[in-house]
Amino acid sequence: MSKFRFAFVLGAAIFILMGCIGGASPEEEIYDVLEETVSKEKQYVEVQKPLQGLEKKEKEIYSEIMNLGMKEFDKIVKLSDDALKNISERTDYIEKERKAMKESKETFSGLDGFIAELDDKKLKDEAGKLEDTMKDRYKLHEKFTDSYLDALSEDKKLYELFKKKDLTMEELEKQISSINKAYEQTIDLNEEYNTATEQYNELKQGFYSTAGIEVE
């Protein structure tokens, strides 16, 4: 019964000017890596809206089931099947999201070599902080999606329970408690991930400013 979705994603920048002539400088190479990273996360961005729609729909299904009595068991079963299909679709979207983030991470891994080529100490320090923050962001996203999938697994158990005619209140309350714990962890990780993404975006803009890269 998800009640959230993470809000922060990387923003693409349009390169306008860099004060260098000739071959690509380390700053330019870093810019290219950072913006290609944004491109790789495009599919991640694209799944957010349908995921939010599915989460809202599942919440509505849950509320409808909870308002029904056992005399309407057939309807409960039908709604539970709808919810299970919803969970399956959300799982597919999360897997697409994870694939996009994996490709982003692979692209970002090329940054380290270009950072080593920077001569300016301030730029190198800023780029190093940028790299560390992004690595933390990737780790948090993996933890977050692992937790989200665990929560979906608990949701699935709930809707399977709803299809039992002999379901007891004790069984129901126990499963709802498990779901609540799973989503509490997921929400916490979601907030940490959003914070890391905000920090990364701020550090990226700071690096561009120090490097003399004008973007819009």
Rank of each mutant, 00 (worst) to 15 (best):
S2A: 06
K3Y: 09
K3T: 05
R5Q: 14
A7C: 13
F8D: 14
G11Q: 15
A13S: 10
I14L: 14
F15C: 07
I16L: 15
I21E: 03
G23D: 08
A24M: 06
S25F: 04
E27A: 01
E28C: 04
Y31H: 01
Q43V: 12
Y44F: 11
V45Y: 13
E46T: 13
E46H: 11
V47N: 06
K49D: 12
K49Y: 01
P50S: 02
L51N: 04
Q52V: 12
L54Q: 02
E55W: 07
E55M: 06
K56F: 00
E58P: 07
E58N: 11
Y62V: 05
G69F: 15
M70V: 15
K71S: 13
E72K: 14
K75V: 14
V77P: 02
K78H: 01
K78T: 08
L79N: 00
S80I: 01
D81E: 07
A83S: 03
L84Y: 12
K85P: 04
N86L: 01
N86D: 13
R90K: 14
T91D: 14
T91Q: 07
D92M: 04
Y93Q: 10
I94R: 03
I94H: 00
I94F: 06
E95R: 13
E97T: 09
R98A: 07
K99V: 15
A100T: 03
A100L: 01
M101L: 12
K102L: 08
K102M: 09
E106F: 12
E106N: 14
T107N: 02
F108E: 02
S109T: 08
S109Q: 08
S109W: 04
G110M: 14
F114G: 05
A116P: 06
L118Y: 03
D119F: 11
K121Q: 11
K122D: 11
K122G: 03
E126A: 04
K129T: 13
D132T: 12
T133F: 04
D136Y: 03
Y138N: 00
K139S: 07
L140G: 07
H141Q: 14
K143D: 10
D146L: 15
S147Y: 10
Y148H: 09
L152Q: 09
S153P: 07
Y159G: 04
D166N: 05
E171L: 06
E171H: 07
Q175P: 09
I176C: 01
I176P: 02
I176D: 03
N180M: 09
K181A: 11
A182F: 02
A182T: 11
Y183T: 01
Q185W: 09
T186K: 03
I187C: 09
N190R: 15
N190Y: 15
N190K: 06
A196E: 10
A196I: 01
T197V: 13
T197I: 11
E198D: 08
N201S: 14
N201L: 12
Q205P: 12
Q205R: 10
G206M: 05
F207N: 00
F207T: 02
S209F: 15
S209I: 05
A211W: 03
E214G: 11
